[in-house]
Structures are given as C-alpha cells and as structure tokens.
C-alpha cells in the first residue's frame, strides 16, 4: 500500500506505540525513585538496585532461572530444529500427522493445562520436582516454537542447493551441516532466543513443576507482587527488560551486518566472474 500517510494514520500509530511503551517506561522510571511509595516521586536513587542485589532470595531465583533458561533453550533448539527438518525435508514417515499435531498443539494449549499435565507425568513416574522437571517442561513447549520459526525459514529457501549437494554425493548429514544449517542459522538463533525468553518468562508451568529449592525469578516476582508493588521488584524488572532489549538489538544488528557482508561478497563474486 503506497497511499499518503494521513494525520489519522499518524495519530493512531503514535497513540498505539504510546500505549505499548508508556507502562514499561513508567516502570523503569519509578525503579529509580527514592521513595518507598511506588507512585510518589521523591528524587533519583539507585538504592533499590542495591537492595535487589542484596536480596539473596532474588539472586538465587535469578540464578536458577538463568540455568534453566540456558539449558532448556539449547536442548529445545536442537530438538526443534530436528522437528522442523522432519516436517519439511524427511517428510515421508509413519505418524507424520500425529507429529505435526503435537508440534502445533502446545502453541495454543493454555499454560495451566500444559503445567498440570506435565506435573501429573512427573508424579506418575515418581520424579522429584525441582530444577530438572522445570527444565524438561520448558524444553517441551519451547521446542515447538523453535520448530515453527525454523520451519518457516526452511520453507522459504532454495532447495536446489541441497539437491545439488546430495546429487554430488554428500550424505544427508554432510548436506545438513555444510549447506542447510548455515542457511537457516538466523532462524536457529532466533529460535534459541525465543526459547530463552519463553523460559525466562514462564510463571505458570514453573509453578506447577518446580519444587522446594527451585524457585524461579517469575515465581519469586509473582509471590512478592501479590503482597504489593515494591521498588525493588521494579528494579529487578528493569534489569530483565534491559537484558532482553540489549539481546534483541545486538542480534538484529549482527544479522543485518551479516546480510550486508553477504551482499558485498555476492557483488564481488559477480565482478570477478
């Protein structure tokens, strides 16, 4: 659509983004508030950050959350990429219908049901609830998100490259690692990041599947928020928002840089021909 940008259009975009960003900005601003009352401004201070870092319960929870997120995102990325390959490349196998159903179902499954069902499994096999069970639960639902992200990349790229490699006698494994994987890498990285943030974020499934000693940061935040808003929690939230925003910006800049590099290399190749 290339029609003029009317003032109505501009107003709705500005208002829409104001709605999306003002709450987070207020949260960040008030994390630097000197007053204990969250809604009364009493000057700039970083004392709540110091208080957050001194709160051992919060620091422990943050550590648990990061361990779970890194392990579950990494395993989910491997499994999700495999699942995407199975759905898009090795398409002929028995039970494919069930398989694709199981990839898509967790995406729309209410979290309370995913959490409850996994808990029942862990109880049925007599597994102690803790970091391991939370990690297993996170792998399960985030691998499906990874599969969908990677799958869309697999769908959009030129298959003749893979076919050429196979025709020239490369094994499927070799073809995957030296042709397919480098091409789908941006999607694999995006999938890892998505899985990481999903795990970092999850409250409901962790609540069902964690045990004593495995309190994650969202669980900690949730239990404190129920008692009321505190500037300390604002500070923790600001740190989390900063980490995620930085990660997303760095990732998208590096992808852009790679694209530019590739375009330049392609141009050079064309010139030397």
């Amino acid at each position: 659509m290339t029609r003029q940008w009317t003032s109505f259009n501009i107003a709705s975009v500005v208002l829409g983004f104001a709605f999306l960003y003002i709450p987070i900005l207020l949260l960040i601003i008030y994390s630097f508030n000197a007053s204990k009352l969250v809604t009364v401004w009493a000057g700039f201070s970083t004392k709540w950050y110091a208080a957050a870092f001194a709160n051992l319960g919060l620091v422990d929870a943050a550590w648990v959350t990061f361990k779970v997120a890194i392990v579950s995102a990494s395993v989910a990325t491997v499994l999700g990429t495999m699942a995407a390959m199975a759905l898009m490349r090795y398409t002929r196998f028995r039970g494919r219908f069930l398989f694709s159903g199981m990839i898509y179902a967790p995406l729309v499954m209410p979290e309370v049901i995913t959490g409850l069902s996994l808990l029942l499994l862990f109880v049925a096999v007599g597994m102690e609830r803790g970091i391991t069970t939370v990690t297993l639960a996170h792998i399960t639902f985030s691998m499906c998100f990874v599969a969908v992200v990677v799958q869309s990349r697999l769908a959009s790229f030129d298959r003749s490259l893979e076919e050429a490699a196979l025709d020239l006698g490369a094994t499927p494994a070799r073809t995957f690692f030296s042709i397919t994987l480098p091409i789908i890498m941006p999607a694999v990285i995006a999938g890892w990041m998505l899985a990481f943030t999903l795990s970092l974020d999850d409250l409901v499934i962790a609540q069902f599947n964690s045990g004593p000693g495995a309190t994650t940061l969202p669980m900690k935040i949730f239990s404190q928020v129920r008692l009321g808003v505190t500037p300390e929690i604002n500070a923790v939230c600001t740190i989390l928002v900063a980490i995620v925003t930085l990660g997303v910006i760095i990732a998208s800049l590096s992808m852009k840089y790679n694209d530019v590099q590739r375009a330049r290399a392609e141009q050079l190749a064309m010139q030397t021909k």
Partner: peptide, 16 residues
Amino acid sequence: LPFWTSFLIRVYAWIG
C-alpha cells in the same frame, strides 16, 4: 520488541 519483554513484567507494570 514488547513481545520479547516478559509477560509478567508487562502485566505488573499496570498495577502501579
């Protein structure tokens, strides 16, 4: 971008 930031934090921001 907001989609990447924590759901819980975004809901929490509205309490204040």
